[in-house]
């Protein structure tokens, strides 16, 4: 096992695997703690969450995921049986060991640019969340307010922590 100490929160860039086997555009995932990185559901592993992904930690170091090994299951056996009964085995949570190697340095400007590009790919989710929040307000939103605000917060962030704090602050709830 080769796993360096990461500074959390960390950020993972990954390309989801589509049903036809092709890789979709790049997305990012937040890992607030080592538990988040090492306990992942079967469905997300099947979609390629960690397979060949890049992880950028809060110190700005880049790591490449070389190998992912399932060393156990967090989901109890009885619950796995229940999930199987209802065809929900994608929700079985695996405990993982990762082989991480430090990759070439990455500038934070590049991280910001890739995060903003990934957010644009999820623009529909931002819009849907905003429209849902608008229902409570009683007024439909005009334009892409929260997404632009989130991108603005990202472009001003200097660490991964600041980036997530900025996005959390404007995510419609």
């Amino acid at each position: 096992m080769r796993e360096p100490d990461l500074a959390y929160p960390a950020l993972g860039f990954w390309k989801p695997l589509a049903r036809d086997g092709r890789r979709e555009g790049e997305r990012f995932r937040g890992f607030a703690s080592p538990v988040d990185l090492h306990q992942v559901s079967q469905g997300e592993l099947a979609r390629g969450l960690l397979d060949g992904s890049e992880i950028v930690d809060n110190a700005g170091r880049r790591f490449l995921v070389q190998d992912v090994r399932r060393v156990g299951r967090k989901t109890p056996m009885w619950f796995q049986f229940l999930l199987a009964l209802f065809g929900q085995t994608d929700d079985v949570v695996h405990i993982l060991e990762l082989d991480l190697v430090e990759g070439p340095p990455i500038t934070f400007a590049e991280v910001r640019q890739r995060v903003c590009a990934a957010m644009d790919r999820d623009a529909d989710e931002w819009l849907e969340a905003e429209l849902e929040a608008a229902v409570e307000r009683g007024r439909a939103s005009e334009g892409r307010g929260p997404l632009e605000a989130a991108k603005s917060a990202v472009s001003e962030a200097k660490t991964v922590q600041e980036m997530f704090d900025g996005m959390d602050a404007v995510w419609p709830r």
Binding site: L11, R27, F28, R29, G30, S41, E44, T75, F79, L82, L83, F86, G87, Q88, D91, V92, V93, A118, M119, D122, E125, W126, E128, A129, E132, F164, M167, D168, W171
Partner: peptide, 23 residues
Amino acid sequence: KGGLKLAGPHAWRTAPWEEPGMR
């Protein structure tokens, strides 16, 4: 279609950088 969702997270809508929610 799967009946009820047994395992979490059961939060209605999570942000795109988090584990997927119920929606």
